[in-house]
Design a binder for these strands. Structure first.
Length: 862
RNA sequence: GCCCAAGUGGCGGAACGGUAGACGCAGGGGAUUCAAAAUCCCCCGCCGCAAGGCGUGAGGGUUCGAUUCCCUCCUUGGGCACCA
């Protein structure tokens, strides 16, 4: 008998699938289509075990759908633009393009041995001119439809390197290379009008039944619909043009508790005062010496500057409130100005206590908790109950004295509208999507700046506007910070497409989120000479199952949903694709223990897994030094806990890697890669190989154990199918272990055992496709198991006629009874009361209560 | 700071509100073997001789019954608009 030799069989079957074009996506009308997509990778240089897990999940779905009679589209590509390529060029010379394509080649070479059922003929990278040229065409169509515009926006500016920094390049407020204090600087930039779609993007979440609830919730919170009051305070002796300050509030019911007005450092009034008053200028400059991320703003100490100006309260013109410039107010949200009601807002009370501003309670608890409740104006914390809770108003001005916050807000809006003080408005937190990047390695924005014509779109026939590789034969210098396109006259200088006069190209490139916002549509016709081919898009869209990391729950998925709408409006996608992903699954990461010892100065020293020996419940280096084991850490090159799939494949084969990454954890959770686990997976596959070899050669006659094995087989078909269809891969694999155990122990005849083994090969095929083809062949299966019809469970073989019921006394299990499945409740009760453990506990007394859940449980309450 | 998750034996994990620990790893015992590897079989939450008791991050609550639902807290992870 031959041994399980993955190296031989994996190559053999990969060649067979290539030959048969098993995974080539073809459009035919006789079969339903199924489009499964995993988020495409960034070409970092090597695949990691997380990729293996992600693509194996997609592959299981794809292979199962193929076996259930679908035309399957399962493509792969690369999200190839972005900063790492430029950073690599800066750090070690070379060109981002060469670096990127070199990485792609390596990664494709590493992915192919894993045997994924992918249609490689559709592969592309977003840095292919063929792809980004079509992206430029989309941009021009969006521009024409008014979906793109220009406005000023702030960026992180490094004043030493004279360059724009990404948020991740800002460390503790300083540029990562120069160490200079980062400033916020305004630039004119391009924006997509995603905020015009706020309401629609929010409401449409309800229709996404096969998306995780948590993702929909995160998106809903991100879009952030709020109902509030917009009104203006009139100012006292303010500079000309600033008679009024518009504010937006979601708590107009707290207007009588107002104690100050706060404006953003970027508010027009702040900018005006900055020019006249050096103290204001200092404070505002201080505020701007901060990154642009919301996280940083929120974590920063709340600070304000009293402008000396005041405003009049809208209900009492003799009541004046001070105007502060405050570092925590965002110009992008609402009107860039607020009123503070310290009694009912934690941030406001912190601010008020810091600057000694009055705190006035507007409402308190509705029911008497006076004993414990300390009102905010008596030194207590801000009182911020949920808006649905009824409270008692002491400084209300509209509605009932006792009402919920929601009712009070509605009443306050109605009252203010009636008094002409303001209007109720709906606002969204979602801001427009800034797509300009001051970088080289991205899709050029296809517009030209002309002195006479202004901003002029490129003509479509001039697309793609390609990135220059060099400058007239001279390599581009990436060692200088900043955007090389800015310093590239022969690329930058051009003729105006409108008037022909000398003009300058836009040197900004697009955010890489643009690239990933429509690649799923491009896969339906990757070589089309327009962004999409409507016939192909109409057939293959939508993505039936999208799989990727939870880290993309908000931005990528929201941008893609916007893009699908914009592509529909510009005629590039059908109406049904406005929501492009029918079902979404977010998978967890692969983690690995960190092996660490202490070096000099107690600095941790990290060791590679292959240098560590696990024995006697500890971990040791070769020289016997004991190593500290930190389990379940995110894989990271700097911690030396990266597992290289190439190594795993050469040691155990692709099927072992695929089996293991699916087996141990539910797919939405993180999985820890352990050497022991991989070893165990491999042993199991070898055992299946041995078992099936033996069965294939057996000629044992039929026995009375045929029937139980058949039943076991049909139960396995049911459970594994369900597991595969519902992302219960770990459960499906546990079931396959059980079925293998049953098959191994069974003394059924050869014919039934062979049938069961064929089914086992089929059920395993999505996870371990190469091994399954080999087993299928040994068992005399026709053709490729990849193309064989998925087995169907026979319902009549699944019916059980008895059921075992646990008997509980007071909720604790005390025994069990086995009864006929359809035994009447009364008889079950009788049997339960006769049970020895029940009799003993009741001790002659009558039970207080008797609960019988048919087919489930019996609970006796004593 | 804000939003969203997750926490169960020595370990990964299973469990429509209904027998907590399926399946796997590690560990223990045995079979086979001249011996070993490989393989096969059995045991395996904790305390306890046992009867029994205790156990799903912590503390409350709802329920005949809670890992599951609700509230508060702790820890870890993801996101926070220029990382992808």
């Amino acid at each position: 008998m031959s041994r399980y030799d993955p190296a031989t069989i994996e190559k053999k079957w990969q060649d067979a699938w290539d030959e048969a074009q098993t995974f080539r996506a073809t459009r035919t009308e006789d079969r339903p289509k199924y489009y499964v997509l995993e988020m495409f990778p960034y070409p970092s240089g090597r695949i990691h075990i997380g990729h293996v897990r992600n693509y194996t999940m997609g592959d299981v779905i794809a292979r199962h759908k193929l076996a259930t009679g679908h035309n399957v589209l399962h493509p792969m590509g690369f999200d190839a633009f972005g900063m790492p390529a430029e950073n690599a060029a800066m750090a070690s010379g070379g060109h981002p393009k060469d670096w990127t394509y070199g990485n792609i080649d390596t990664m494709v070479d590493q992915m192919k041995p894993l045997g994924f059922g992918l249609d490689w003929s559709r592969m592309f990278a977003t840095c292919d001119a063929e792809y980004y040229g079509q992206q430029q065409a989309l941009f021009l169509d969006f521009l024409e439809k008014g979906l793109v515009y220009r406005k000023n926006a702030v960026v992180n500016w490094d004043p030493v390197d004279m360059t724009v920094l990404a948020n991740e390049q800002v460390e503790n407020g300083r540029g990562w290379r120069s160490g200079a204090l980062v400033e916020r600087r305004e630039l004119t930039q391009w924006f997509f009008r995603i905020s015009d779609f706020s309401g629609e993007l929010l409401d449409a979440l309800d229709g996404l039944d096969d998306w995780p609830a948590k993702v929909k919730l995160m998106q809903a919170n991100w879009i952030g619909r709020s109902r509030g009051l917009q009104f203006a305070f009139s100012t006292v002796e303010a500079p000309e043009g600033f008679d009024r300050i518009e504010v937006y509030t979601t708590r107009p019911d707290t207007l009588m508790g107002a104690s100050f007005v706060g404006i953003s450092p970027d508010h027009p009034l702040a900018k005006h005062l900055e020019r006249e008053n050096s103290e204001v200028a200092d404070f505002v400059a201080e505020c701007r010496r901060m990154g642009t991320s919301e996280e940083e703003l929120e974590k920063a100490e709340k600070r304000g500057f009293d402008t000396g100006l005041t405003v009049r309260h809208p209900f009492d013109t003799s009541w004046e409130l001070p105007v502060y410039i405050a570092n925590f107010i965002l110009m992008d949200y609402g009107t860039g100005a607020i009123f503070g009601c310290p009694a009912h807002d934690e941030r406001d009370i912190e601010f008020a206590r810091k600057y000694d501003l009055p705190v006035r309670s507007v409402f308190g608890p509705a029911t008497g908790e006076e004993g414990t409740f300390i009102a905010p104006d008596e030194g207590g914390p801000a009182y911020v109950p949920p808006k649905a809770e009824t409270v008692r108003y002491v400084r209300g001005f509209a509605g009932e004295e006792a009402q919920t916050g929601d009712e009070a807000v509605d009443a306050a809006i109605a009252f203010c509208e009636e008094q002409g003080v303001g209007q109720g408005v709906t606002k969204y937190r979602l801001r427009d999507w800034g797509l300009s990047r001051q970088r080289y390695w991205g899709c050029p924005i296809p517009v030209v700046h002309c002195e006479t014509c202004g901003v002029v779109p490129e003509k479509k026939e001039n697309l793609p506007i390609e990135l220059p590789y060099d400058e007239d034969g001279t390599p581009i210098d990436f060692s200088v910070p900043g955007n090389p396109l800015d310093r590239h006259p022969s690329w930058r200088d051009c003729a105006c497409p409108k008037c022909g006069a000398p003009a300058r190209r836009e040197t900004d490139t697009m955010d890489t989120f643009v690239d990933s916002s429509w690649y799923f549509a491009r896969f339906t016709a990757p070589r089309a000479t327009t962004p999409t081919d409507m016939a192909e898009a109409d057939y293959w869209m939508n993505v039936d199952q999208y799989i990727g990391g939870i880290e993309h729950a908000i931005l990528h998925l929201l941008y893609a949903r916007f893009f699908a709408r914009a592509m529909h409006l510009t005629g590039h996608l059908p109406e049904k694709s406005k929501e492009p992903f029918n079902a979404l699954f977010t998978q967890g990461m692969v983690t690995h223990a960190i092996f660490q010892t202490k070096g000099a100065n107690d600095r941790p020293v990290y060791h590679y897994p292959e240098d560590v020996e696990l024995r006697d419940g500890g971990a040791f280096l070769e020289d016997g030094t004991e190593v500290e084991v930190i389990p379940s850490a995110k894989m990271s090159k700097s911690k030396n806990n990266v597992v290289d799939p190439v190594r795993i494949i050469s040691e155990y084969g692709a099927d072992t890697a695929r089996w293991f990454v699916l087996s141990d954890s539910p797919p939405e959770r993180d999985v820890e890669w352990t050497a022991a686990g991989a070893e165990a997976a491999h042993k199991h596959l070898a055992r299946v190989y041995r078992l099936v070899s033996e069965i294939a050669e057996s000629d044992a006659p039929a026995t009375q154990e045929d029937e139980p094995l058949k039943r076991e087989m049909h139960k396995a078909i049911r459970d594994v199918s369900l597991g595969v269809e519902s992302f219960g891969f770990n459960a499906a694999i546990a079931r396959l272990y059980a079925f293998t155990n049953a098959l191994g122990k069974s003394r059924a005849g050869a014919e039934v055992r062979r049938e069961a083994a064929r089914v086992l090969a089929q059920l395993m095929a999505p996870m371990t496709p190469h091994l399954s083809e080999e087993l299928w062949q040994m068992l005399g299966g026709a053709g490729l198991v990849a193309e064989a019809a998925w087995p169907v469970a026979d319902e009549s073989m699944l019916v059980e006629d008895t059921v075992t019921l646990p008997i509980q006394v007071n909720g604790k299990r005390r025994g069990e009874i086995t009864v006929a499945k359809d035994m009447p409740k009364e008889e079950v009760e009788k049997l339960a009361l006769e049970h020895e453990a029940v009799v003993r506990t009741l001790d002659g007394a009558a039970p207080k209560k008797l609960i019988v859940v048919p087919g489930r449980i019996v609970n006796v309450v004593a």
